[in-house]
Measured scan of single mutants.
Amino acid sequence: DVEPGKFYKGVVTRIEKYGASINLNEQVRGLLRPRDMISLRLENLNVGDEIIVQAIDVRPEKREIDFKYIP
């Protein structure tokens, strides 16, 4: 289970102007929005990149997770 405040290694699977889709595994994925990137710009991400993200909002009833990137 993903817990708010914990850090996870994820893989960038899609990049859109509203954010990047991050997969932690086949069943768990979430969104990294541009506003939640401290020192990383969306255009510097590539599909397949592995990054460390922090879960900031977990809504299991909607199967949604928001991530934050902290270098």
Rank of each mutant, 00 (worst) to 15 (best):
D1Y: 13
D1T: 14
D1H: 14
D1W: 15
D1N: 14
V2G: 05
V2I: 15
V2A: 03
V2N: 02
E3F: 11
E3V: 15
E3L: 13
E3Y: 12
E3W: 09
E3N: 07
E3P: 15
E3G: 04
P4A: 12
P4F: 09
P4Y: 08
G5M: 06
G5P: 03
K6D: 03
K6M: 09
K6Y: 07
K6N: 07
K6G: 07
K6L: 07
K6Q: 09
K6W: 06
F7N: 04
Y8D: 00
Y8K: 00
Y8C: 14
Y8S: 00
K9N: 06
K9I: 11
K9F: 08
K9L: 12
K9W: 12
G10D: 01
G10P: 00
G10T: 01
G10N: 00
G10A: 10
V11G: 00
V11K: 09
V11H: 05
V12T: 00
V12N: 00
V12E: 00
V12M: 00
V12R: 00
V12Q: 00
V12F: 01
V12H: 00
V12I: 13
V12Y: 06
T13A: 08
T13D: 05
T13G: 05
T13F: 04
R14S: 13
R14V: 09
R14P: 00
R14E: 07
R14K: 13
R14M: 10
I15K: 03
I15L: 07
I15F: 02
I15R: 00
E16Y: 14
K17T: 12
K17A: 14
Y18A: 11
Y18R: 13
Y18H: 15
Y18C: 13
Y18E: 14
Y18Q: 11
G19N: 03
G19I: 05
G19P: 02
A20K: 01
A20M: 05
A20I: 13
A20F: 08
A20D: 03
A20C: 08
S21P: 01
S21C: 15
S21V: 15
S21F: 15
S21H: 15
I22C: 03
I22T: 01
I22K: 01
I22P: 01
N23L: 14
N23Y: 14
N23A: 15
N23K: 15
N23R: 15
N23I: 13
L24E: 01
L24Y: 02
L24V: 11
L24R: 01
L24C: 06
L24K: 00
N25E: 05
N25C: 11
N25A: 08
N25H: 08
N25F: 08
E26I: 12
E26H: 13
E26C: 12
Q27V: 13
V28T: 12
V28Q: 08
V28R: 04
R29Y: 10
R29W: 13
G30S: 02
G30A: 03
G30I: 10
G30D: 04
G30W: 03
L31P: 03
L31R: 06
L31N: 08
L31Q: 06
L32P: 02
L32A: 01
L32K: 01
L32G: 01
L32H: 02
R33T: 05
R33F: 05
R33M: 05
R33C: 07
R33D: 05
R33Y: 05
P34G: 08
P34H: 06
P34S: 10
R35L: 07
R35A: 13
R35E: 14
D36E: 05
D36L: 03
D36Q: 04
D36N: 14
M37C: 09
M37K: 03
M37I: 07
M37R: 01
M37G: 04
M37D: 06
M37Y: 03
M37Q: 04
I38D: 12
I38R: 07
I38N: 11
S39L: 11
S39H: 15
S39F: 13
S39V: 08
S39A: 12
S39D: 15
L40R: 06
L40N: 06
L40K: 07
L40E: 05
L40Q: 05
R41D: 10
R41L: 14
R41Y: 10
R41N: 12
L42H: 03
L42C: 08
L42V: 07
L42F: 08
L42M: 08
E43R: 08
E43A: 10
E43F: 07
E43Y: 07
E43I: 07
E43N: 08
N44D: 15
N44H: 14
N44G: 09
N44C: 15
N44T: 11
N44Q: 15
N44P: 02
N44L: 10
L45Y: 02
L45H: 01
L45G: 01
N46I: 10
N46P: 00
N46A: 14
N46H: 15
N46K: 15
N46W: 09
N46M: 14
N46F: 09
V47D: 01
V47S: 01
V47A: 02
V47P: 04
V47Q: 02
V47Y: 03
V47F: 02
V47M: 05
G48V: 02
G48I: 00
G48M: 02
D49C: 06
D49Q: 11
D49T: 05
E50A: 10
E50H: 14
E50Q: 12
E50V: 15
E50G: 06
I51F: 03
I51A: 00
I51S: 00
I51E: 00
I51M: 03
I51N: 00
I52T: 10
I52V: 13
I52M: 10
V53K: 00
V53I: 08
V53W: 02
V53M: 03
V53Y: 01
V53T: 00
V53N: 00
V53A: 01
Q54R: 05
Q54M: 15
Q54N: 01
Q54E: 06
Q54P: 00
Q54T: 06
Q54Y: 12
Q54C: 12
Q54S: 05
A55H: 01
A55Q: 02
A55R: 03
A55V: 15
A55D: 00
A55K: 01
A55Y: 06
A55E: 01
I56Q: 06
I56G: 05
I56C: 08
I56E: 02
I56V: 10
I56R: 05
I56M: 13
I56Y: 10
D57Y: 11
D57W: 08
V58L: 06
V58H: 05
V58W: 09
V58T: 07
R59V: 05
R59A: 05
P60H: 10
P60G: 10
P60Y: 10
P60M: 09
P60T: 09
P60V: 11
P60K: 10
E61H: 11
E61I: 08
E61G: 13
E61Q: 11
E61V: 08
K62E: 10
K62N: 10
K62M: 13
K62G: 09
K62L: 14
R63F: 13
R63P: 09
R63N: 14
R63T: 09
R63D: 11
R63G: 15
E64W: 12
E64G: 07
E64M: 10
E64A: 06
I65R: 02
I65Y: 09
I65T: 02
D66T: 12
D66Y: 15
D66E: 08
F67G: 02
F67T: 02
F67Y: 02
F67C: 05
K68C: 10
K68D: 03
K68H: 05
K68W: 05
Y69C: 06
Y69V: 05
Y69F: 11
Y69I: 04
Y69A: 03
Y69W: 08
Y69L: 06
Y69M: 06
Y69S: 03
I70H: 08
I70N: 09
I70L: 11
P71S: 11
P71T: 08
P71E: 08
P71L: 06
